[in-house]
């Protein structure tokens, strides 16, 4: 009896081994994803962001109006079936403008954060990797950038480069990369002394290969968290600049210039301010939740 049973279990074991001959491992990002999925607030944040992105991308399919379509007979209309969120003082459909404004605001947020993250990673990576005088120079530049009061400079720069989406993105990223640079530099100082960096060098790997193949991938987690929070910050900054009238210029809608537009009518048609305000609020909040979830999921104590 016993022999039989052992024989049977042996056969089962052999069969199960044969069934999965190729063993695939779970990498760092897979583990992080598994942990991230358990963070409910972050999932809500990510869902809201994805929803807003989808409505921005598919805006033409979600509304019957053009964003610059004027209906002078229906100005400042209250929400109704044909205009679910009402119209503004020129008879623009607010819902339509909100969708198209999402395109601009999210694009500005994402590209500014991405540019800042890439710039910060490059500066921090090179600074920490090469060290010595180069590190000194780059970090002093970073200090200087940190000490410049951003708003007045942003206003001046936006005056000359603003109005266009590209101009605003450039202006915002110029003042957003320093935090990332410091983060990455700190990680580089730690990582470059790790044996795997020496191993790569001993194998004849070039500096670029060691930096971008071995060190930077190990420093990306905090960059991702910082970058996510920067998206929210950039959307806020864009809204601020547009509110001051030096950001995205109408008729191109952004949540910021919709707010600015609404301030004249705040007592008569308050919904003109409420909708873009709510969108900015929800988006920035969602990015903060997402960043929070990523921070937990990418915990450096997660040793892999």
């Amino acid at each position: 009896m016993t022999d039989l049973r052992q024989g049977a279990s042996g056969a089962v074991l052999a069969a199960s081994l044969a069934a999965r001959p190729e063993v695939g491992g779970e990498g760092y990002w897979q583990i992080a994803w598994r942990r991230f999925k358990k963070h409910r607030v972050a999932i809500v944040g990510a869902s809201v962001i994805l929803l807003f992105m989808a409505t921005a991308v598919f805006a033409p399919f979600l509304t019957r109006y053009e964003f610059d379509q004027i209906d002078l007979y229906r100005r400042k209309a209250v929400p109704s079936f044909s205009h679910p969120l009402g119209t503004d003082e020129l008879g623009h459909d607010v819902f339509t403008r909100l969708l198209y404004a999402g395109r601009i605001s999210l694009t500005v947020g994402f590209t500014a954060a991405l540019t800042a993250a890439v710039l910060g990673t490059l500066v921090g990576g090179i600074s920490g990797f090469y060290g010595r005088w180069l590190d000194n120079v780059l970090m002093r530049v970073t200090d200087v950038m940190f000490s410049i009061p951003a708003l007045p400079v942003l206003i001046v720069l936006a005056r000359y480069m603003g109005g266009s989406v590209l101009g605003i993105v450039l202006v915002l990223s110029v003042f957003a990369w320093m935090g990332t640079a410091r983060l990455v530099r700190g990680d580089m100082l730690r990582l470059r002394t790790q044996d795997f960096a020496d191993a790569a060098r001993a194998l004849g790997a070039s500096d670029a290969r060691i930096l971008f193949r071995h060190l930077v991938p190990n420093a990306l987690a905090p960059v991702l968290v910082a970058g996510t929070l920067t998206v929210g910050g950039a959307i806020l900054s864009e809204a601020g600049l547009s509110f001051l009238g030096i950001g995205i210029q109408p008729p191109t809608p952004s949540w910021g210039n919709m707010l600015q537009n609404a301030q004249d009518f705040i007592w008569t048609t308050p919904w003109l301010a409420v909708w873009p305000g709510a969108m900015i609020f929800l988006t920035v909040l969602s990015f903060n939740f997402l960043g929070d979830g990523l921070r937990d999921a990418l915990d450096p104590r997660l040793k892999v």
Binding site: D195, F196, D198, A199, A202, H214
Partner: peptide
Amino acid sequence: RRDMQIIFQDPYSSLNPR
């Protein structure tokens, strides 16, 4: 460098975790 290689003491820091 093909002709000279090194094996490290710490098996944890000598392999790139990513």
